[in-house]
C-alpha cells in the first residue's frame, strides 16, 4: 500500500526489466484480456440496454413471447409515464375518433382506448429528487468538509472515538431508525416535506463525507497553512484560501458518492414522504398504468431517472477512483 511506504525508492527505469514484456505470448495474453473485459462490459450493460429497448416498446411488444429485440419503436411508454389516463368504453372511443382536434399524444392514447385526463406526477417526483438530492449533497459535503478539516488539523480529545462513532452511524439497518424517525417527524411537522428528507439525507451522508474528506485533507501538507498563518492569515482565511482550493478533487469525489446515495435512496423516502415531497424511487414501481403492468412506462420512468446518474458518473469518473482510493485507505 502506498500509504505504508511513502518514501519507497522510485527508481527511474528506462529499460524494461520484465523479460516477458514483448513476447508474442504477452501479446496474446493482452488480447485475451481485452476480449474478456469487453465481454464483461457487454454483460454488465445487457439489463440497462434491455430497459432502454423496453422503454420504446408498445405494450404487446413488451410482453411478446419470445422477447423481441427488433420492433417498431413507439413513444407510448413515455406518454403513459407522463400522463394520467382513463379507459374509454367502445362508444366513447368511436366518439373520440371522430374528433379532428386531437394531438398525436391524444391519438396515441386513443389507439390504446384511453383518454388523457391530465399530466402525471412523475415530473414533480423527479423535481423532488433533484431538490432533495442536490441540496442535501451540498450540505453534507459542506458540513463534512468543516468537520473533516477539524479532525485532520486540530488535536481533539477523543478524536478516534468520535470518528468511529461517526462511522458507526452508517452501520445501522435503516429500519431500526425509521419508526422513531417517523414519529419524530410527525411531531415536528416535517413529515412529507422537502426539508425533512434533505435533513435526513444530509445526516446519512455526513458520516461518509467526513471520512472521505478527512482522507483528502490529510494529504494536503500542513506547511502551506502554517506558512500562511505566520504571514498573518487567520485560521479561517487559511482554510478558505489554501485548504479549500487544494481539496477540490476530494470535494468532487465526495459529491459524486453523496449524490448517488441521495438520488437512489428508497426506504426512507417511502416511509417519510407521501404526496408532496415524495421522490422518484418509491414512485417508479407504482407506475402501474391502466389495467395491468405497463412495462414500457416503468422502463421509461427508470430511464429518465437513470440518465442523470449516468451523466454524472461519466463526467466525474476520474474522481470516483480517487475517492475510493483516499477514503478507503484511511479507514
Amino acid at each position: 500500500m502506498a500509504a505504508q511506504s511513502p518514501a519507497a525508492p522510485r527508481l527511474p527505469v528506462n529499460f524494461s526489466t520484465r523479460v516477458d514484456e514483448v513476447s508474442s505470448r504477452a501479446r496474446l495474453a493482452r488480447f485475451i484480456r481485452v476480449v474478456v473485459v469487453i465481454a464483461v462490459a457487454i454483460i454488465m450493460l445487457i439489463p440497462v440496454t434491455w430497459m432502454t429497448l423496453t422503454a420504446f416498446k408498445s405494450r404487446p411488444d413488451a410482453v411478446a413471447v419470445p422477447p423481441k429485440i427488433f420492433f417498431q419503436p413507439t413513444l407510448e411508454g413515455f406518454v403513459s409515464l407522463l400522463t394520467d389516463r382513463r379507459q374509454l368504453t367502445t362508444e366513447q372511443i368511436a366518439e373520440e375518433q371522430k374528433r379532428t382536434d386531437l394531438t398525436w399524444i391524444d391519438q396515441l392514447a386513443l389507439s390504446r382506448g384511453q383518454v388523457i385526463t391530465g399530466p402525471s406526477d412523475y415530473p414533480q417526483r423527479l423535481l423532488n429528487s433533484i431538490i432533495v438530492a442536490g441540496v442535501s449533497t451540498v450540505f453534507s459535503v459542506g458540513l463534512g468538509l468543516l468537520s473533516a478539516y477539524s479532525f485532520s488539523r486540530f488535536s481533539i480529545a477523543g478524536a478516534g472515538d468520535l470518528l468511529f462513532f461517526i462511522l458507526s452511524t452508517r452501520m445501522l439497518p435503516p429500519v431500526v431508525v425509521t419508526i422513531p424517525l417517523f414519529l419524530m417527524y410527525r411531531a415536528l411537522g416535517i413529515y412529507d416535506t422537502h426539508f425533512g428528507l434533505i435533513l435526513l439525507y444530509t445526516v446519512f451522508n455526513l458520516s461518509f463525507s467526513v471520512w472521505l474528506l478527512k482522507g483528502f485533507i490529510d494529504e494536503i501538507p500542513r506547511e502551506y497553512e502554517e506558512a500562511a498563518l505566520v504571514d498573518g492569515y487567520t485560521r479561517l482565511q487559511a482554510f478558505r484560501k489554501i485548504v479549500l482550493p487544494q481539496s477540490l478533487t476530494g470535494i468532487a469525489a465526495t459529491t459524486v458518492f453523496c449524490l448517488i446515495f441521495a438520488w437512489n435512496e428508497y426506504a426512507f423516502a417511502l416511509m417519510l414522504s407521501a404526496d408532496r415531497a415524495r421522490t422518484a424511487p418509491p414512485s417508479i414501481p407504482s407506475v402501474l398504468g391502466t389495467g395491468g403492468i405497463e412495462s414500457a412506462a416503468i422502463a421509461a420512468g427508470s430511464l429518465g431517472f437513470l440518465i442523470p446518474v449516468v451523466i454524472v458518473t461519466f463526467a466525474l469518473r476520474k474522481y470516483l477512483l480517487r475517492g475510493v482510493t483516499f477514503g478507503a485507505i484511511r479507514q
Binding site: 473485459v37 454488465m44 450493460l45 434491455w50 428508497y266 417508479i284 414501481p285
Partner: peptide, 17 residues
C-alpha cells in the same frame, strides 16, 4: 466506467428490471 454503471443504479429500479 461502463462496468461501473450497475452500482450507480437505484436498487428498486434494478429489482424491477
Amino acid at each position: 466506467t461502463l462496468i461501473l454503471i450497475p452500482m450507480m443504479l437505484s436498487p428498486v429500479v434494478v429489482g424491477l428490471f
